[in-house]
């Protein structure tokens, strides 16, 4: 049994997928959000009455997790399989198998690479004196070009490939894209550091002691990694408090 889904149902599922993290929770993570996004499709396939739809909805309330931009890959594939009348156990196994890669591929590509890259580009522009609206426009347009394309591509890839979506994901080589973009992000990071050190109102103008302190802080982050973030933030706040107190006394 294979049934086609009306455009309205497909569009509705996609739009709902934008809010798939709306009821994020530690028990089922995106489980309830996944069922919420799938609901228009399930209503169309199984009928709207509560006793008809109860079992299919319950199947999709289970634990699910993914990067939000790639969750649509799973959603599309599951919609396809539900429309094809696939075995529920197989659908469940697809969701179990795909959540790991959709999380790790998306985290590496988006959170660890594209987002910092675009933010660095916008920060460098801002530091060089670009007007605020230019900075914000560049950031939002560049970032969301990647974001929106990825969402639409993923959802459609899932809808088309169904169970075989793993092959499509492997072919798209998201990990390869991450590796290729990473050096560009490093270049942008270097550019921002260069602009902040050498530019007008930069650290060179502030004086050698400030420059030295900043260099030390950079090395602490470089060799200490993420565990240095919180102490650094706490120290910053404490330092600001201390300078304020000293300033108040003199």
């Amino acid at each position: 049994m294979s049934r086609s889904l009306p455009t309205g149902v497909v569009v509705s599922a996609f739009v709902r997928s934008l809010a798939i993290q709306g009821s994020w929770n530690y028990r089922t993570m995106l489980g309830s959000g996944f069922a919420f996004a799938l609901l228009p499709g399930l209503r169309h396939l199984y009928g709207g009455a509560s006793d008809e739809i109860r079992v299919p909805v319950e199947r999709h309330l289970e634990h699910f997790n993914a990067h939000p931009y790639l969750a649509g890959v799973a959603l599309g594939a599951v919609l396809r399989l539900e429309a094809d009348g696939a075995d529920p156990e197989m659908v469940r196994r697809l969701k179990l198998a795909i959540r790991g890669p959709l999380g790790s591929l998306g985290d590496a590509l988006i959170w660890a690479t594209v987002l910092p890259g675009v933010a660095l580009a916008a920060l460098t522009l801002a530091w060089l004196g670009a007007p605020a609206w230019v900075v914000v426009t560049v950031f939002l347009v560049l970032y969301n070009a990647v974001h929106v394309v990825l969402r639409i591509w993923g959802f459609r890839a899932g809808m088309r490939a169904g169970r075989e979506v793993g092959r499509v994901l492997a072919g798209a080589d998201l990990a390869g894209w991450t590796r290729r973009i990473e050096p560009v992000v490093v270049l942008l990071l270097g550019a921002l550091v260069g602009a902040v050190v050498g530019g007008a109102g930069g650290l060179v103008e502030a004086g050698a002691p400030w420059l030295a302190l900043t260099a030390v802080a950079f090395l602490v982050g470089l060799f200490g990694g993420h565990r240095t973030w919180r102490p650094a933030a706490v120290l910053t706040v404490v330092a600001i408090g201390a300078v304020t107190l000293i300033g108040g006394l003199t």
Binding site: L94, A97, I98, G100, P101, V165, G166, R167, L169, A170
Partner: peptide
């Protein structure tokens, strides 16, 4: 098809 996904 599942192996493909876990390999990813």
């Amino acid at each position: 098809w599942e192996q493909e996904l876990y390999r990813l």
